[in-house]
């Protein structure tokens, strides 16, 4: 759409601008403030320069949770994107079942995140949970409060349960938007299902897949509630991801300086990712 240039449009954006500025800038300034100062309480602050940043960037714990975070996010993308795409192809496009399937599939997305955690917590209990008991009955030792592998398995499975539907719904929206004429042309040419997928559906889904991958990337990068309820970051600290590490430092330890520096490094990573996302989206839209 060709848009007209009009600076009066700022008046329409002003409420949103003020609201988000209040919520984003004030807290961000607080964090920046803490990250470069040292405090001994009593609201007395001393300039500490980049000490906290150096400390956090050389902190083994931070490195470990960053590494865990990257492995987790990688796994999530490798599983959820192909699975969501595959199941979207299985969804009915017309008929009475469409609504039923859509509602059922979307349900996990509406469960409060702590309930997701509790749900899988009780599901995976080794003695009385369906999943835990089931796996143990197969002869595989499973105990997510003791074994890191079981804990990781449960956390990943939980996330697949929770978020694959997001990828699915995005792909489904993309598939429904493909005009019938494309399929008819393929039929006339005698194209096989694989060719239809490869040369018609996949290219048309590029846009929604970009959104899906990047949303999943960023949201899994911030995962907190589900994991803290399910495993509490344990056993030991084997499922301690970035957000958990940060909240422990900020609220638990009252280590304001390092926590604030952590926040800023974390936020910069996310900001970079958002920028990447935005540029990719805009390039897509410009086409």
């Amino acid at each position: 759409m060709n848009k007209t240039f009009n600076n009066k449009a700022w008046w329409l954006v002003l409420p949103v601008f003020l609201m988000v500025a209040f919520n984003a800038l004030v807290p961000l300034m607080t964090v920046v403030n803490y990250s470069i100062q040292e405090t001994f309480g009593n609201n007395e602050f001393f300039w500490s320069g980049t000490t906290w940043f150096e400390q956090i960037l050389h902190d083994g714990e931070f490195h470990a949770s960053l590494k865990r975070q990257l492995v987790f996010t990688g796994l999530i993308l490798l599983i959820e994107v192909p699975l969501g795409l595959a199941i979207a192809l299985c969804m009915p496009r017309q008929g009475p079942w469409v609504s039923v399937c859509l509602v059922l599939v979307a349900l996990p997305l509406l469960v409060p995140w702590n309930v997701v955690g509790s749900m899988w917590n009780i599901m995976a209990l080794p003695d009385i949970g369906l999943l835990g008991k089931g796996i143990n009955a197969l002869g595989i030792p499973f105990n997510y409060t003791r074994q890191p592998i079981s804990a990781w398995f449960t956390v990943v499975l939980m996330d697949v349960w929770h978020w694959t539907s997001l990828v699915l719904l995005l792909c489904y929206a993309g598939l429904v938007a493909i005009p019938d004429a494309y399929y008819q042309a393929a039929k006339v040419d005698g194209a096989r299902p694989w060719a239809v997928f490869r040369y018609i559906q996949l290219p048309k889904l590029k846009h929604v897949l970009t959104i899906a991958i990047l949303l999943r990337f960023m949201d899994s990068f911030m995962i907190y509630t589900e994991v803290i309820v399910l495993t509490g970051g344990g056993p030991g600290s084997t499922t301690k991801f970035l957000s958990i590490d940060l909240v422990q430092k900020a609220l638990g330890g009252f280590d304001l300086g390092p926590a604030a520096a952590f926040s800023i490094v974390y936020f910069l990573i996310i900001l970079f990712l958002s920028w990447l996302f935005y540029t990719l989206m805009m390039r897509e839209e410009a086409k």
Binding site: L28, Y224, A250, S263, S274
Partner: peptide, 15 residues
């Protein structure tokens, strides 16, 4: 605006 949708809640809790 978009970057705020991506902001980790954990960063904002304390402030």
């Amino acid at each position: 605006l978009l970057s705020n949708r991506m902001a980790p809640a954990a960063v904002f809790v304390l402030p």
